[in-house]
Write a protein that binds this DNA or RNA. Sequence first.
RNA 1: UGGGGUGUAGCCAAGUGGCCUAAGGCACCAGAUUUUGAUUCUGGCAUUCGAAGGUUCGAAUCCUUCCACCCCAGCCA
Length: 566
Amino acid sequence: MSKTKAAPNHFIKAIAGNDVRNGQYPEIYTRFPPEPNGYLHLGHAKSICLNFGLAKDLGGHCNLRFDDTNPEKESTEFMESIRASVEWLGFEWDRLCYASDYYEHLYGFALELIDKGLAYVDDLNAEQMREYRGTLTEKGKNSPNRDRPIAQNRDLFERMKAGEFKEGDYTLRAKIDMESPNFVMRDPILYRIRFAHHYRAGDKWCIYPMYDFTHCISDALEGITHSLCTLEFQDNRELYNWVLANITIEQTITGEKGKTLPRQIEFGRSNLEYAMASKRKLIQLVNEGHVSGWNDPRMTTLVGLKRRGYTPKSIRDYCAEIGVTKKDSTIDMAILENAIRHDLEATAKRVFGVTDPLKVVITNYPEGQTEGFEVANHPKDESLGKRTLNFGKEVYIEQDDFMLDPPADYFRLGPGREVRLRYGYAITCNEFVTDDAGKVVELHCTYDPLSARGKTADGRKIKGIIHWVNADEAVGAEVRVYDRLFTDPNPAAAEDFTALINPESLTVYPNAKLEPSVLSASAQDRFQFERVGYFCFDEEDSEMESGKLVMNRTVSLRDTWGKQNR
RNA sequence: UGGGGUGUAGCCAAGUGGCCUAAGGCACCAGAUUUUGAUUCUGGCAUUCGAAGGUUCGAAUCCUUCCACCCCAGCCA
């Protein structure tokens, strides 16, 4: 198995490398900080590869930390799925952390800010708060509660924690600057009251810390050196630094004292064309039944890509390929497809599979005769071994490989035309049988007994080569072929993105015929159906034991002929 | 409109004053090899770096102005 592409150099690696070299930090410590409120998708993969990859490249460490401070949206299900996806991608965290484990610390730091006169309890309601905050052009106004005495703030905050007030009655705010041009600094809320059950903390708390207060402190507690996040948090960096500068945080939970405070660096998001990265909209796709679930193979969630047959390596390579910059980007689908094709080309066993079968009777082949052709499982990798393909009087070929009235540059089968059955004999089509609707349902062909092993007795060249499956031992399967989920490259921009769902994103071939060797494969095996594409067993619907095979097409083979005829 | 960002080929992306008439990947085009119209291989693919001025012997890289796009007015993260 080839190694994952080395992550190219990017500006964050340059900064971090420098910080280590000049002794600013003894070693790099990063973290991947998802909120357990949904499933991970390709966008998260970029962040995972960045954070874990940076630590690995520079000899540091990386934590997986759940940023779980909003009990109403978070769940154990999401948390566990995220954990599994990070592992599946192939990364190992140094420590598994939860912001919810820091609630007690956080509360203590809030008290410290109150005691320093840097935080106050406010009773403005949400609407009033918005009015006081100002607008893009108007500065904000100080809350009437801004100069509440410290002792009273402390009393009120303790009572908030004790559950004496209703949700929305009070908040704890930092006392910074209502006239700041940066909204984030206009006395941001630090704590709000929520009588909600937390999936980990249970009912212990009824006040929950906000992101801006929690994240920087969590980073500092864990000894994070480089806190990497996406561009939209650039404004929040000022608050991140303000909080850390105004609390006494000299000891990390790893026990090392006096560490330099973490530094936040932002990078641009990458969106895939024809896909959806917004968690909210992903949830909508699932809840409204537009897809079968979070792991629908058309979804660009990590569980969806996994079920589709993408390998962890291909996702890592994709992330290395798209790079890390300060610019939001829209990635061409072809880059993702290239990554998985590249991996599977090298590793997938070759097999014959006919998705849409057309029966062929070899009229001059002796009744009851069979013969075996020993073939390689991979054209370039002998270690993948060999297998025997049995040939007989009746075979299935692909409907696409026969045309009633083929153009000159179509070098497959047509009336009177000759083609080679790959690894087997050359056959010529003499007759075709149609059903009542005029559809071709069977071909009568003759074979050339002297055409085995790629040769012909008279030296004639046969350009067309097609795959086939012996009808006697063909294994039935359901083959699912996927296309992009949306018809528009940027569905997120539409008012109603559900109107842009591609009606042809899933095509089912219920009567596919596969060569019998797939029955002895293991559930995780991936195949190349020669001339068709890369396939895997569907992890939900395939039942290997009972022989019920459901195959997902991960990606097609590159098809220059099909493309020019599109 | 205040603040914070970004602009290099169809899509990513190197490059931080001279070896840039701009690396690499994807896509695309042409050719070779091929018992997968696959793979592989070879060649092609920006005289130009959002625009206009300026500094300099010399600029994608420095300065000025302008333009375009993204983010911020949740008791979400």
